[in-house]
């Protein structure tokens, strides 16, 4: 149990002298521990991935070599920790190009494979690598499978990354992928494919992006793409209305992988008001939206925007009066802030007492 805590300290170094000691004395211990774990096949995947994260953060060649070895062996390739590990390899990281090049011929599966594609896209975008490692027939077959996967939530991030990689692929090879991406059932993939189409010189996809701006469920992604392409003026005026922006905010929150993973099928404004909000100690506009998923067991709920965007899934429903929902969110935010006014247990009564005291 102490090991993860100790590893965490390798990521919390705030002075040069301590960093020197950690790299001279600490990292070699972790290299040896990693090598030993591999040689005797006593693999605790959680510990190993935490060690790899430390290696990635410290940016040494010895560490990067071990990350490459673990990736080639496909150790725990489904774990989301691989995203965290490879995210460290940005354009500032001294081993990014080494890592990308050393893994270019390895078939990487699961989260690991997707994270590798995302890294390759990023490094290709800034010109850190000249040839995209997915510009091969074998990798194109893998990307085609990701785009065609019917279980779209499982491979949504992969499909988005494939769509983003298209400007860096040989055009003949990428043509079929582009057609698949533009026709993908997820608008998130279609938007990314539209951006790639534009970057490849076909400006006709611009109107597709503008159209998605007007749908609050995908507006945030479409607007970000327009900004990325330098077309801020193309955002329709109605998309800047506070109610619309608040709806888009909640849709983005609900779309996070650890929430529903996609925006709701329906979303409606339930209430909006200006009130003194105790958790932030200021006067602000807040919104409540009821949302619905057609195919989900829990079918829907209520979300709040204006302070901390979130939905207390399972606690609030659209049957509750708006004041009760605000009361529960108020309790929740105060608890998360460690505020001395926070009640021990969340309840409508405790929240209402707090909100009413200031309003």
């Amino acid at each position: 149990a102490a090991f993860p805590v100790l590893l965490g300290l390798f990521e919390s170094i705030v002075c040069k002298e301590a960093m020197h000691v950690m790299q001279e004395q600490g990292l070699p211990l972790l290299y040896a521990a990693f090598d030993h774990a591999l040689s005797c096949e006593r693999l605790d995947a959680d510990d190993l991935l935490l060690i790899l994260k430390v290696f990635a953060i410290h940016g040494t060649r010895d560490g990067a070599e071990r990350i490459v070895r673990a990736a080639q062996l496909g150790i725990a390739s489904q774990r989301t920790m691989w995203s965290v590990i490879l995210e460290q390899f940005d354009e500032e990281h001294p081993q990014s190009v080494f890592m990308i090049n050393r893994l270019k011929d390895s078939l990487l599966l699961g989260t690991l494979g997707i994270a590798y594609l995302q890294r390759a896209n990023r490094l290709a975008a800034v010109g850190a690598i000249q040839r995209h490692p997915f510009d091969t027939d074998a990798r194109c077959r893998q990307m085609t499978a990701w785009l065609r996967d019917a279980d779209h939530l499982r491979h949504l991030q992969a499909a988005i990354a494939v769509a983003a990689s298209l400007p860096y692929l040989d055009q003949t090879r990428g043509r079929d992928l582009l057609a698949l991406a533009l026709d993908h059932h997820s608008p998130c993939v279609q938007i990314e494919a539209a951006v790639s189409t534009i970057r490849l010189g076909n400006l006709s996809a611009r109107k597709l992006l503008i159209r998605w701006c007007s749908d609050p469920r995908y507006s945030r992604i479409a607007m970000r793409s327009l900004r990325f392409l330098g077309w801020v003026d193309a955002v329709p005026a109605g998309c800047c209305h506070p109610d619309f922006l608040a709806t888009a905010d909640l849709c983005q929150w609900l779309s996070q992988p650890n929430e529903y993973g996609r925006p709701p099928d329906r979303i409606e404004l339930m209430d909006t008001r200006v009130l003194y909000w105790p958790p932030t100690d200021d006067l602000r506009q807040v919104w409540l939206f009821s949302y619905h998923y057609d195919d989900h067991e829990c079918s829907g709920g209520v979300g709040m925007v204006g302070s901390v965007t979130c939905s207390l899934i399972g606690e609030t429903t659209s049957d509750l009066p708006a004041a009760d929902v605000y009361a529960l969110h108020c309790c929740c935010e105060l608890q998360n802030n460690g505020d001395r006014r926070a009640p021990r247990y969340r309840s409508v009564k405790a929240g209402k007492t707090l909100v009413d005291r200031y309003n």
């Binding site: 170094i13 301590a18 960093m19 000691v21 950690m22 004395q25 600490g26 040896a32």
Partner: peptide, 20 residues
């Protein structure tokens, strides 16, 4: 946070003991 070389040394020694 690890803010001195001494603290870093203690952590490394602890890791060494733990891994041994």
């Amino acid at each position: 946070n690890v803010s001195t070389a001494e603290e870093a040394t203690i952590i490394c020694d602890t890791v060494a003991v733990l891994l041994a």
